[in-house]
């Protein structure tokens, strides 16, 4: 019972860390934009990168995307992203 709680304690720490990181990244992106510290093209790349990190954290830490068998969860997501990306690219090129 004691070992269990220690293990779970570690887990809750992980969750908390992920959350903290996300808030941090959001705040950072927010301030970068608010004060326009960097030139726009680079800024866009940077905040997009921040968003990507946050998405990966959500999927991996909170949503448990790395299941044990099959990899169907990731496959489903990749399939959707592929179609979505095609749509976005060609709608922008419009």
């Amino acid at each position: 019972m004691k070992r269990l709680s220690k293990h779970t304690n570690k887990e809750i720490h992980k969750l908390f860390l992920s959350f903290l990181l996300m808030i941090l990244l959001t705040a950072l992106a927010f301030f970068l934009v608010l004060y326009q510290l960097i030139s726009p093209p680079f800024l866009i790349v940077l905040i997009t990168f921040f968003a990507l990190i946050q998405i990966v954290i959500q999927l991996d830490r909170f949503m448990d995307i790395r299941e044990k068998e099959g990899g169907y969860r990731l496959t489903s997501l990749i399939g959707g992203s592929f179609v979505a990306l095609l749509a976005i690219v060609f709608l922008i090129l419009l």
Binding site: Y72, S76, L77, G79, G80, S81, V83, A84, L85, A87, I88, F90, L91, I92
Partner: peptide
């Protein structure tokens, strides 16, 4: 798989 579908939905909306 519903999430996969939702990704397409939001992807198109972003598009």
């Amino acid at each position: 798989f519903l999430i996969g579908a939702e990704v397409v939905v939001f992807g198109c909306l972003f598009g």
